[in-house]
């Protein structure tokens, strides 16, 4: 008895929902970055599940996962750099306080 594909997709959807809720609810920029990583990971889980359960697509899904790894690493590096430089201009990481660009 193997776990059905739908169960993996359901877990992925729940994790994505948690990440989205975190991005919308939390005000700390670093926590928002963490929640974005959770969302990316949920997408990875869905991609791997589909790629492994449909043999006709062979490893394409896993290749996409590797590219998502690359993009996630780049995103977190640049994102943290932006948070740090914003903190240097104004000593806060609260995204409600960082609004110099608001008209």
């Amino acid at each position: 008895m193997t776990v059905p594909l739908g169960a993996f997709v359901a877990v992925s959807a729940v994790l994505f929902f948690i990440g989205t809720a975190g991005v919308l609810v939390r005000r700390n920029a670093v926590v928002i970055l963490m929640c974005v990583e959770l969302m990316l990971n949920a997408a990875n889980l869905a991609l791997v599940a589909f790629s492994r359960r449909f043999a006709s697509i062979d490893e394409r899904g896993s290749v996409f996962v590797i590219f998502i790894f690359v993009v996630a690493a780049a995103e977190v590096a640049v994102g943290l750099a932006i948070v740090l430089s914003a903190y240097r201009n104004r000593p806060t990481v609260d995204v409600d306080e960082i609004r110099q660009l608001r008209g």
Binding site: E37, N44, S62
Partner: peptide, 26 residues
């Protein structure tokens, strides 16, 4: 293989980066 990359990149690199971000911000 993907699981190994996940441990290396996410658990290793990205978590450490995030912890550095926590350390450098109040």
């Amino acid at each position: 293989t993907i699981a190994m990359f996940q441990v290396l990149i996410y658990v290793g690199a990205i978590t450490v980066l995030i912890l550095y971000g926590v350390m450098f911000t109040p």
